[in-house]
Simulated assay, not measured.
Amino acid sequence: MITDADIKLHVPDNIPWNWAETGYFNFYIPEANIFGFVYIVHRAGVGATISDIEIVDRPGFSADDAVYIDLINHNPLVEKAEDFTLETGLSFRAKSIRDYEIDYRAGGIDLHLECEALMEPYDIHDPEMDPMAVVDEAAAIANTGFGSAYSAHFDMTVKVVGRLKIGGKEYPIDCVSTMDHSWGPRPENGFHPILWANAHFGENYSLHGIFSVDRDAPVGQQHVFKHGYALIDGQVRGAKGGRIGTLRPELFPTSMEMTLIDRDDREHTVYGSVLTHHPWVPYGNNLSPITMTRWHTTDGRVGIGTYLEGFPLNRIRK
């Protein structure tokens, strides 16, 4: 069960050097084709906090196609994960597990985000919440889709408001998004290939899914459902199945179809087309092609979301 105590650092006895606590927050300004995210990783085992702010406005094939990137790997470890300011220009405050405020001012960027939850944190290890949860600890880690990196993990759909100033131009931010938070051993090699995807159709309907990935399998067989939910009118409906069909000519997808099957056997199918893509490298041994995706429901609703895959690089190319 996730509580307000989980906004603080989790520091076990004899903490492993590869221990990590992460927070991911993204925002959309679709009318300007802008997609951005803030990614934070606290590594108490080595005394460092990673801050990563990235803004994208096009289908980019290299890092310098981005509007802006500020990825600093070796900030000193913060004293409080729930309230800190870095010399990078990033400030973060978690008022509770459901309420966050983020500011970043540096390099001609002025970003302000207020993120308020539309649901309770979705704990992938809680059987009362997630039909795919496994009670046995070792089996649960194997079943996360991301190994020990998701030893403790929640996803949460949030309302995001704020502003983005780029140089002299200002954009209002008003969107629905999905954030996540994890803690546990997170080695930088041996990552499990993963898909993390969500679609938001206003405050009353969102989908989120986590899948394992085999890029070498045939189209339609590359993804295996692990966890997810449908958020409908404030009610969280854990998913017990799902499937993805992705058209990926090379590294980046161009279109996809996602179906989640909720706990009551209701199927939620959405179709996506990519608006922006970016070769994110959150860790040196992990390449994560990330996209802002336009989603459509079968009944004509139009939404926005993220389609993010992560692939290990420390493996021999086939």
Results as ranks from 00 to 15, higher is better:
Gly168Cys: 02
Asp155Lys: 05
Gln222Phe: 00
Ala20Ile: 08
Ala81Cys: 02
Val213Ala: 11
Asp265Glu: 05
Ile304Ser: 10
His223Pro: 00
Arg163Met: 11
Leu231Phe: 14
Thr259Lys: 06
Gly190Ser: 09
Thr291Asn: 05
Glu137Ala: 15
Trp196Leu: 11
Glu116Gln: 11
Gly272Thr: 06
Thr259Ser: 08
Ile69Glu: 09
Tyr68Met: 00
Ala142Val: 12
Val160Gly: 00
Phe252Gly: 00
Asp126His: 04
Val46Gln: 09
Ile173Phe: 05
Asn189Asp: 04
Asn198Met: 03
Thr85Gly: 12
Phe225Thr: 01
Gly60Tyr: 02
Ile72Leu: 12
His223Tyr: 06
Ile141Asp: 15
Thr254Gln: 10
Gly245Tyr: 12
Ala230Met: 13
Met292Ile: 02
Ala63Trp: 13
Met1Tyr: 11
Ile53Ser: 02
Asn285Val: 04
Val135Arg: 15
Gly300Asn: 04
Ile97Gly: 04
Trp17Tyr: 12
Ala239Lys: 04
Ala106Cys: 04
Gly242Asn: 03
Glu128Gly: 13
Ser212His: 03
Ile194Cys: 07
Gly310Gln: 13
Phe225Asp: 01
Met119Glu: 15
Ile210Ser: 10
His74Trp: 06
Leu164Trp: 04
Ala230Ser: 14
Met256Lys: 05
Ile34Val: 10
Phe154Leu: 13
Thr85Ala: 15
Pro249Trp: 05
Lys169Pro: 00
Thr259Tyr: 05
Asp123Gly: 06
Ala139Phe: 09
Asp174Arg: 13
Glu116Cys: 03
Gly300Gln: 04
Arg315Cys: 13
Leu231Val: 09
Ser206Asp: 10
Glu170Arg: 14
Asp264Glu: 09
Pro30Trp: 05
Ala81Leu: 12
Val281Ala: 06
Ala199Met: 14
Met179Tyr: 13
Ser273Ile: 09
Gly108Ala: 02
Gly108Cys: 02
His10Asp: 01
Pro131Trp: 01
Thr85Ser: 15
Gly220His: 03
Pro193Gln: 06
Lys95Ser: 10
Ile304Pro: 01
Glu267Thr: 10
Ala20Leu: 09
Asn26Glu: 15
